[in-house]
Design a protein around this nucleic acid. Sequence first.
DNA 1: GTGTTAATAT
DNA 2: AATATTAACA
Length: 282
Amino acid sequence: MREDDSNWFSKWEEQLPKPEELMPLTQTLITPDLAIAFDIGTSHTPQNHHHHHHHHRSLQQPSPISTPSSQPNSGEFDSSDLGGGGGGGDEPARTLKRPRLVWTPQLHKRFVDAVAHLGIKNAVPKTIMQLMSVDGLTRENVASHLQKYRLYLKRMQGLSSGGGGGFGSGGDPATDRLFASSPVPPHFLHQPDNYLPYMPAAALQQQHHHQQMAAVAVAGHHHLHRHFGSNQSNHQFLSRQSLQPVHRVGTPVHNSVSSSYVDDLESAQEKKALTLFPIGDD
DNA sequence: GTGTTAATAT
DNA sequence: AATATTAACA
């Protein structure tokens, strides 16, 4: 009777898994977005464990950006786990959904500069992505953007060659505005594939300020932001830059660099989605 | 595997 | 609405 009871209890206790045999529930049960928001699920380097309710822009390093060459992997993300399963093999395939990328005018400018620098021929997603050297930017991001940008250019060609004067209507207005935020290099429209015009390399050198640019994305109403990390190639033309998420609370702040489109974009953005602005002087 | 395009999904 | 993802194909 009693012996039986204590007996099954002992056996039951023996079969309990040891603590080290338990699976780490955090990392597998929490949503991917949450994992990203808290910098966990990245194998290691949980150095940023501040328990701030509100982030503001605290996730960013307040200190001035270090030189690109002196930043091997200072605790940021590793692009290997950001590749969406590109290289990860042993780790349980975490279907981490990366937040959608927000194409700011500044980011788009980089895109255009890269495309301009490459020339239409070599301007393919992979190459563009490498030249942009924006942390966390994936080939798919670029491909998707490139697709839309090409459609935009096609529209522009069609309208401009028609002999009409103004353009600005005919397609998605919001999209057009983003694309119009960065001047389209003239040789983008119908290009003889062998003709190499003067490269506005000067345009690229605008970014002589060494700054980091990281892709910061927002996921829906989760105001989580994320700093992608690690990049392989460091091009001499395009150094990395940083984008800072800014929370527009409706206050019509006028920065020194108050371009018209920025204002327009802000007006159009009734959503309080994070607006990104460069630290640089773009 | 990469690039392009259209369609579709979130 | 803006961007991602997928599918089909070169």
